[in-house]
C-alpha cells in the first residue's frame, strides 16, 4: 500500500473530503451533474430521470439515492457538492433546503442556526466596542 488505508485517513466529523477515492467512486454521478450546465440536459433529466441516469452509467446505489433525494447518500456514493448543487437546482432545492435535509432539521431551523451565528457576531462586536 502506498497510501493510507481508509481508516487511517483524517476524519472530520460531518464532512466529506472529496479525495481521489471519492472522485473515482463518484465520477458518473458528478459527470451527469456537470451536464446540467446546459438547459436542454436539465430538461431531459426532468423528463425521464431513469433514462438520463442510464445514459451516464450511474450505479444502482447512485440511482437509488437520487430517486430517494438522499443527499447524504449522494455524498457517500461519491457525489461532490459543487456538482450536486446543479442537480439540486433542477429539484428546486436551495443550499438551505439541502442543509436542512442533511442535518435533519427543518429549513427554518437551519436558517435560524445561521442567524444565530450572526447574533453572536453582533454581541462579540458590541463587547469589543465596550472594552
Amino acid at each position: 500500500m502506498f497510501r493510507p488505508a481508509g481508516d487511517d485517513r483524517r476524519q472530520i466529523p460531518g464532512t466529506y473530503v472529496f479525495d481521489g477515492d471519492a472522485a473515482q467512486r463518484g465520477f458518473a454521478i458528478n459527470d451527469m451533474c456537470f451536464s446540467f450546465n446546459k438547459a436542454e440536459n436539465r430538461e431531459a433529466f426532468a423528463a425521464d430521470e431513469e433514462a438520463y441516469m442510464d445514459r451516464y452509467g450511474l450505479s444502482e446505489e447512485q440511482k437509488k439515492v437520487i430517486r430517494d433525494r438522499d443527499v447524504i447518500g449522494m455524498l457517500n456514493s461519491g457525489g461532490n457538492i459543487y456538482y450536486l448543487a446543479k442537480l439540486a437546482g433542477i429539484l428546486g432545492l436551495g443550499v438551505q433546503d439541502i442543509g436542512a435535509l442533511q442535518t435533519g432539521t427543518t429549513v427554518d431551523e437551519f436558517k435560524a442556526a445561521l442567524l444565530a451565528h450572526g447574533t453572536r457576531l453582533k454581541e462579540m462586536t458590541h463587547q469589543g466596542e465596550a472594552a
Binding site: 460531518g14 464532512t15 455524498l75 457538492i81 443550499v95 439541502i98 442535518t103 445561521l114 451565528h117
Partner: peptide, 13 residues
C-alpha cells in the same frame, strides 16, 4: 462555510 454533510452550516467566527 460548509454546504455538505451533517456539519452543513458550519461557521467559525
Amino acid at each position: 462555510h460548509q454546504l455538505e454533510g451533517q456539519r452543513a452550516g458550519h461557521i467559525n467566527i
